[in-house]
Design a protein around this nucleic acid. Structure first.
Lengths: 339, 339
DNA sequence: CTGTTAGCGCATTCAT
DNA sequence: ATGAATGCGCTAACAG
């Protein structure tokens, strides 16, 4: 009840409880070697003083922060965090919390914020890092390469120097399966819309399509778009327009692109799926809002976040992970209306 | 170049530069009273040692963290961060970064995480707080009431003890305006779907509708839903079914609900907007994907985030804000197809 | 089981 | 302008 206006420290508690503050510290961490009598008095004192340990002091003394940072880099113009990332975040937050760490997320959306976060990483801001959609060639990337703390990334990379433990989905497999699904339905004249070339996911999804198509694969029926947006789907449909008559299906790199394609096909007078079937990837919330609803490849974002969190946590406990370790999470087809 | 395996400290830098470490500290903060000769040598030493100041030590000595925490509470089942919040986050991140603070976001989605964050707040984890969609009756809420650091919330409250400076939108006005828009178009037999009762925004939007309706307001034509989801819109349409024939418009508390209503109305055989016009609120990304596209009330989420950030920052600089201060941001109608 | 002590890395007086 | 000294709040090693 001292309330001197200042915050209570461990010494105030010690004095109230009539013990030395070393004992209080022991009580706070682990409770070992503290008599129950003392423990009770300390507990009471903590209550009375409304004491809360100071994080900065604890981190300084202990040389760790009891914190895991989730870093997400978004283009400065693009303002939205994708739904899948948001789900993974929530899930990782839970796993990390259960392990008694605090997850803090940092957003890198400008040059300046990127540099500031790089500084933080260099100064051991967190005990572990989860990286979402990070560019691999700036000050921030370098900071991660230099830190001693465990780092886990959310997407496979094609950069050899950037070999962090990775948790990703079976992109190739998923796209292969949904393509085979179309083939089994008798749709054999398929075109493909590929995601942006810098993205390994985009590359792998295309690979899956190509596998499924085998001999039937035709490079002329692949459209390469610059991003993952609806708009690109519309542009692809326009590009395909001359050959639309001979197509009976279009496999898309993600749901947003698929929605764009469907919109444009509809404008051209084609019916989906009757004339042309269209498939997506991600099973985003939009997939079920579109008309027709999108048949797509589902990936479990919650599992993604949880698995990433479990991996850093185990690395923090000392588990060694081989160079180039990649864990691929399964995908599944969800059948709706568009194919 | 020492590289003894350990991280360089300010003392290493001092030694390299041939000055005392107090001088290095001065150089790092503000550069005042350091000879240019010394400054140059220090700069070189920092470079050579790859020195980065330790955050924890700095926070401890300085009694501030140079950090602003954005806290967002989401229901444990609901896994998604709303698009509007995501936009506001990105924008706040930028404003805070420009002021040379670091924004860190904390997610409270479980009992445990809520308590842990409350602890952090009690131990002065950050110099300021931005609160999104926080429940007002748990340990976390109490922590905010007790902290000395500035707190800004994103939504007006109807709780008197919970009088933090607030930045919100003109919810009542927006709903009043779009209702008047319908009335001017000759739609006078309007029903309303209200958001969840615990939400002041929901209450205020209903208030706006009621204002615009005046004498014509009919309590029997109001449906109160439990959440903001599509599903609730569908349920509302079902509840309204007996009187659907005498309605020519439905004003909804948000876009998701509006989409649900439209879907269900379509199933019932009503055409939107021909038979019944439907309006939304928020201008979420979904508003333009729905079929028909939704006429709605737009709010500028980026402005929301920026304004909140500017407010905490100014409070942190000492600006006093009167008890119960509320800043309302304008909304505007965006006319699409559904009304 | 408990008190004492020496840092953790840095900011900030106070001398000089 | 600069060096030396003190302390931020806490952990951990060491005696006892």
């Amino acid at each position: 009840m001292i309330m001197a206006g200042k915050k209570a420290t461990i010494r105030d508690v010690a004095q109230l409880a009539g013990v030395s503050y070393g004992t209080v510290s022991r009580y706070l961490n682990g409770n070992t070697h503290v008599s129950t009598a003392a423990a009770e008095r300390i507990a009471k004192a903590i209550e009375a003083a409304q004491y809360t340990p100071n994080q900065a002091a604890r981190s300084l003394a202990q040389q760790r922060t009891q914190t895991i940072a989730l870093v997400i880099q978004v283009e400065s113009n693009e303002t939205l965090i994708q739904a899948s990332v948001s789900e993974a975040m929530a899930s990782a937050n839970q796993t990390i919390g259960d392990a008694d760490y605090q997850m803090v997320t940092l957003i890198a959306n400008t040059e300046a914020s990127t540099r500031r976060i790089a500084q933080l990483v260099n100064s051991d801001f967190a005990d572990g890092y989860l990286l979402f959609s990070l560019s691999e060639d700036d000050a921030l990337a370098e900071a991660f390469l230099n830190t001693d703390s465990p780092v886990v990334v959310s997407e496979v990379s094609n950069n050899n120097e950037w070999q962090f433990p990775t948790v990703d989905f079976t992109n190739a497999d998923g796209q292969r399966q949904i393509t085979e699904y179309l083939l089994h339905k008798g749709r054999e004249r398929l075109a493909y819309i590929c995601g942006p070339g810098y993205s390994p996911s985009a590359v792998n999804r295309l690979k899956g399509f190509r596998q499924a198509m085998g001999e039937r694969f035709d490079e002329n029926k692949v459209y390469y778009s610059d991003d993952w947006e609806m708009n690109s789907g519309e542009m692809a449909a326009v590009a395909f327009q001359p050959m639309l008559g001979e197509l009976d299906g279009i496999v898309c790199a993600n749901d947003d692109i698929a929605i764009g394609v469907i919109n444009q096909l509809t404008r051209f007078g084609y019916r989906v799926p009757d004339d042309i079937a269209v498939t997506g990837f991600d099973d985003s919330p939009l997939a079920v809002l579109s008309n027709p609803k999108i048949t797509t490849v589902r990936q479990d974002s919650r599992l993604h976040g949880r698995t990433m969190a479990e991996l850093v946590l185990s690395m923090m406990k000392g588990t060694k992970v081989e160079h180039g370790y990649v864990k691929l999470l399964p995908t599944s087809i969800v059948e709706r209306q568009s194919a």
